[in-house]
Every structure is written in C-alpha cells, then in structure tokens.
Deep mutational scan, measured.
Amino acid sequence: MEVRTIKVFTTVDNINLHTQVVDMSMTYGQQFGPTYLDGADVTKIKPHNSHEGKTFYVLPNDDTLRVEAFEYYHTTDPSFLGRYMSALNHTKKWKYPQVNGLTSIKWADNNCYLATALLTLQQIELKFNPPALQDAYYRARAGEAANFCALILAYCNKTVGELGDVRETMSYLFQHANLDSCKRVLNVVCKTCGQQQTTLKGVEAVMYMGTLSYEQFKKGVQIPCTCGKQATKYLVQQESPFVMMSAPPAQYELKHGTFTCASEYTGNYQCGHYKHITSKETLYCIDGALLTKSSEYKGPITDVFYKENSYTTTIK
C-alpha cells in the first residue's frame, strides 16, 4: 500500500517557510505537534488534498525554529505562539472599519479597549522592536488589523473576551517599542525636605499616572512627601515624541487643539466601556464603527496623549 502524501510549508514567522512532505494517514499533531492554519487549530486533523502548498504555523520545537521565533517575536515564552494563534482565530472574524481616516474595530468580545489602543497607536510616533509587531502594525494602518490585535493580546497575556485596560495595554506595548531616546527629568520640591531631581528613561519617561493635564504637570502637581507634608512635583525636561497622561476616570474637559487623542471610560472596574476622542479640525468621538463630532467635550476621561518633541522648564 502506497503512502499518500502532500507537500506543505511549516513556519513560526510566515517569513521562513520549511518544506514538509506530510503523510495523509496521520494527523498534523502526530507529525508536527500543535499546528495552526489561519489561526485555526488543526492539530487533530489529517492532511487533505486542499492543504497542498498551504502554510501551517507550528510551535518552535527545534533550534532553527526557536531562533526564527525569537528573532521575529522577541520572546522565548513557549506558550506565546499558541496564544497568538488562538487569538487570531477570533480577531480574523472582527470587522476593521476605516473611521475618520483611522483603522478602528467594530465592537465584539469586549474589544473596546483594543480599538482605543489601536486608534491611539496610529496617532503617536512609535516604532516597535519585534519585527512581528512592526509588520502587523503597518498592515493594521492599511486596514488589516487582525494579526496586530492578536499579537497585542498575546504580548499582554490576554484572551479574547476578557476586559482590558488601555493604560495597561499601552504599557505592555511600550515595553516592546523603541523608547531608548526618551528621557524625563522631574523635580520634587518640599518646604521641609528641599528639592530632589529624578531622571527617568524609556517607558517611565512617557507615562504618568495622577493627572490628565500635561500643562498642569509642567506647572506642578501636589504629591505627598515622605515627611508627610505636601510637596510639588513638576516637569523639568521632556525628550520624547509623545507623552501619555493618565488618571482614574473623572469628568474632564478636553479643549480642541490642546491634545492629540484621549480615552474615555464609562462604567466601573468590573464592567465598563471605552471610547476614543481625537482632536482634528474639530473633536471626534470614535466608538467602534461609530463616529460623532463636537466642538467641545466633557466626560469621564482616563488617558490623554500629547505630541511632544523637546521641553525644558522655565521655572527657576
């Protein structure tokens, strides 16, 4: 009895394709271990004539594949690729409408935090270190965002349907971005203890939790000093293409032309909904596939993004 075979390709990165001759009487799992086709788990399936010449994702289970996976995804987590594939199996079914010149995501599976993050990423200057993220990001900007969303979920250790947080998501993504040249110098002034300067680099240099107003941050924000008295913390120097200011959701007025974009969060910790506000020729609110415009805006804002380049204080 002759062994019926077909020729397929296996890959971990969709760049390096490895030619395989597979036995049609055995499952993919018996031949390769966990195997995925377009995100779908085909591990328990036997090869079919229609699979001839198709590319299958496999887990990096030998040295060659491990090197290829690390170079593309910059992670050695053995569960990463499987999590990416199972997320992709959902995100490829989502709709990605162009809204006001940006790629958004039609609401499904509690994905409003991903839509808000995706919209924000198209408006701030950011370059990702893992080629996987950078490639998928370019495709997302062009309207094909399924891979990018699935990668975000995998890097953030999230599953489809789980509630997510924009600030946490951005923080994970910033860790995989090139923020080497970003720098922030802060000064804390206390009447009792004097003053202390701190220099922050990388992710810490672009994120701040405690106030939404970048102007206020430049002037000074009140913080408790270690001595128990009130101290003032203010920005001395900022070198970065953008800054992200966050605070627990509270009524906040966004003035046209003073910011790049913002995240609105309605609801409580267990259950809520994100919308995205962007400042173009007027203010726009993007909620999944829905767009509304207004000249002014007041609502429960939790993150505001500002364009920056270089700032030095005039406070002496």
Results as ranks from 00 to 15, higher is better:
Asn178Trp: 04
Lys233Met: 15
Tyr234Met: 09
Leu37Thr: 09
Tyr234Ser: 07
Lys127Arg: 14
Val189Lys: 10
Thr19Val: 10
Asn129Trp: 08
Gln98Asn: 11
Leu290Gln: 15
Met85Gly: 05
Leu119Arg: 01
Thr260Met: 12
His276Leu: 09
Leu151Ala: 03
His74Met: 09
Ser104Lys: 04
Thr169Asp: 03
Lys127Asp: 11
Tyr72Ile: 03
Glu2Ser: 09
Gly210Asp: 00
Pro130Phe: 03
Gly194Val: 01
Val21Tyr: 15
Met245Pro: 01
Met85Ile: 10
Lys106Asn: 10
Arg66Pro: 06
Thr314Ala: 13
Cys261Trp: 01
Leu235His: 01
Gly194Lys: 06
Asn111Lys: 04
Leu102Ser: 06
Pro97Cys: 13
Pro241Ile: 01
Thr266Lys: 06
Ala154Leu: 02
Leu133Thr: 04
Gly164Thr: 01
Ala145Leu: 03
Gln134Cys: 10
Phe217Leu: 15
Tyr172Leu: 12
Cys271Lys: 09
Leu121Asn: 03
Arg141His: 08
Gly161Ile: 02
Asp165Met: 07
Phe9Ala: 11
Val160Gly: 04
Lys127His: 10
Ile286Pro: 00
Tyr234Cys: 05
Asn157Pro: 02
Val243Leu: 09
Met26Lys: 13
Thr64Leu: 11
His273Trp: 02
Tyr155Val: 02
Arg141Trp: 05
Tyr96Thr: 05
Asn178Glu: 11
Lys293Thr: 14
Trp94Thr: 03
Glu162Asp: 14
Gly210Val: 00
Val99Gly: 07
Glu144Lys: 11
Phe9Leu: 11
Tyr274Leu: 01
Ile152Ala: 07
Leu179Pro: 04
Thr19Leu: 13
Val189Thr: 11
Asp13Ser: 07
Leu118Met: 08
Pro300Trp: 13
Glu71Gln: 10
Phe32Tyr: 08
Ser294Gln: 14
Asn157His: 08
Lys106Phe: 06
Gly53Tyr: 12
Pro47Met: 04
Leu179Asp: 04
Cys182Arg: 03
Gly29Lys: 07
Gln196Pro: 03
Glu204His: 12
Thr35Pro: 07
Gln123His: 06
Leu102Asn: 06
Gly161His: 04
Leu153Asp: 03
Asn157Met: 03
Tyr138Asp: 14
Cys285Ala: 13
Met245Ile: 03
Val304Tyr: 01
Ala115Met: 06
Glu125Tyr: 06
Ala154Asp: 01
Leu114Pro: 06
Gly194Thr: 02
Val166Arg: 01
Thr91Met: 03
Asn178Asp: 12
Tyr284Pro: 00
Tyr284Gln: 13
Val160Gln: 05
Lys92Ala: 10
Phe148Ile: 08
Ala142Cys: 15
Tyr214Pro: 04
Thr226Met: 10
Arg141Tyr: 06
Met24Leu: 14
Thr292Lys: 09
Pro130Trp: 02
Tyr137Leu: 12
Asp77Ala: 07
Lys158Met: 03
Cys182Gln: 01
Cys156Lys: 02
Glu281Arg: 04
Phe32Met: 09
Arg139Tyr: 09
His176Asp: 05
Ala140Ser: 07
Asp165Ala: 06
Ala115Val: 05
Phe242Ile: 01
Phe305Glu: 00
Tyr269Phe: 12
Ala117Arg: 02
Gln20Thr: 12
Thr232Val: 14
Phe305Met: 00
Thr198Asp: 07
Thr211Gly: 08
His48Gly: 14
Tyr138Ile: 14
Lys293Glu: 14
Gln237Lys: 14
Thr103Val: 11
Tyr252Gln: 09
Ser25Val: 11
Leu291Arg: 08
Val243Ile: 11
Ile45Leu: 13
Phe80Ala: 02
Thr211Trp: 01
His48Trp: 15
Gln196Ala: 10
Ile15Cys: 10
Tyr252Asn: 05
Thr116Arg: 01
Gln216Thr: 08
Lys229Ala: 13
Lys95Trp: 08
Lys275Gln: 08
Ile301Val: 11
Trp94Tyr: 04
Asp287Gln: 00
Gly202Phe: 01
Tyr72Thr: 07
Glu125Met: 04
Gln270Phe: 04
Thr302Cys: 10
His273Gly: 01
Ala146Ser: 13
Phe148His: 04
Tyr297Asp: 01
Glu281Asp: 13
Thr43Trp: 06
Val236Ser: 05
Lys7Tyr: 09
Cys149Arg: 02
Ala205Trp: 00
Ser213Asn: 09
Ile6Asp: 06
Leu200Ile: 09
Thr43Ala: 13
